[in-house]
Design a protein around this nucleic acid. Structure first.
Lengths: 148, 148
DNA sequence: CGCTTGCTTGGAGTGCACTCCAAGGTTCTA
DNA sequence: TAGAACCTTGGAGTGCACTCCAAGCAAGCG
């Protein structure tokens, strides 16, 4: 994975629900599809654009994903949920590959993402207020004018 | 506008910050651009796809938006923030045009949207936990392995 | 061995939500 | 009344994040 040391399933992500396909460290793409919920297309595409570390291959060239890859994918899934653009995730992946001297920059990227997420939550909570107002209107009076 | 009776600026939306361009009920498209933050392209597109009521025109065919239109636009903006697809917003607009017999269906659409928003908020809060974990990692130890 | 199912690739296609364009008419200010 | 700034249209183009395709190897089973 990434930050989470050698031990795999950290609190960090760990959907746990989908138990990792048993066996150790040599998953086929279809096993990863089952585990991650992504399509094989998307997994190959992630690799093409540099969002995945170079995935190991069998002697005939088929992908064999490791537990590390699965951890990374779980983290990427979380980043995706934040709404971070794929280009930024690729940038993050590049920084990880570049090594420790990008620590600060990575931290800043995650902090900016954190701020974006909190702003988005606030925005959504604002919409909840409007939705509740409208829903009450429909549930209650049903007399105020409406038009479009 | 819509649910909010004849009086315009309800608690429902009212960005209030952007004071409505003074003058009453005959705004040009550029005034609406300034007020709504949408582009003129988008306003015309909204009309084309049926997301706007038929906007009034000057004797030469130029659009003249009313306060009602501005209210509707503010509400549509909130729906957009929820992440509701444009197609669903169009459906909602159609139902409003169809009249009171769509009250229940409209209410259901808004309730479903509300549930989606709450699920999305929960999802985002889940990502915050991961982000905090990572940010702490970068801020603190700086010793755990990281790779991609 | 033959068969089915799975995996490979580059490149093209999809759906969404805009976003822009060209060519021309309108409105405003001096 | 001239010129700048604004408005109109249908249709084409953009950017994002996938999504799919065809043609051809690879893997596993009886």
């Amino acid at each position: 994975m990434e930050s989470t040391s050698a031990r795999t399933d950290t609190c960090a992500s760990a959907p746990k629900a989908h138990p990792r396909p048993e066996g150790q460290d040599r998953y086929t793409i279809s096993e990863v599809v089952a585990f991650s919920g992504l399509t094989a297309h998307t997994l190959r595409w992630y690799e093409r654009i540099g969002l995945m570390p170079h995935v190991d291959r069998s002697h005939t060239g088929q992908r064999r994903f490791s537990n590390r890859d699965l951890d990374w994918l779980a983290f990427v899934g979380k980043l995706r949920l934040t709404g971070m653009p794929v280009a930024d995730m690729v940038r993050y992946a590049e920084m990880v590959r570049e090594g420790d001297h990008t620590f600060t920059e990575r931290q800043e990227l995650l902090e900016a993402t954190r701020r974006d997420v909190q702003a988005r939550i606030a925005e959504l909570q604002g919409t909840l207020a409007v939705l509740d107002f409208k829903i009450d209107f429909y549930g209650g009076a049903r007399t105020a004018p409406e038009r479009v």
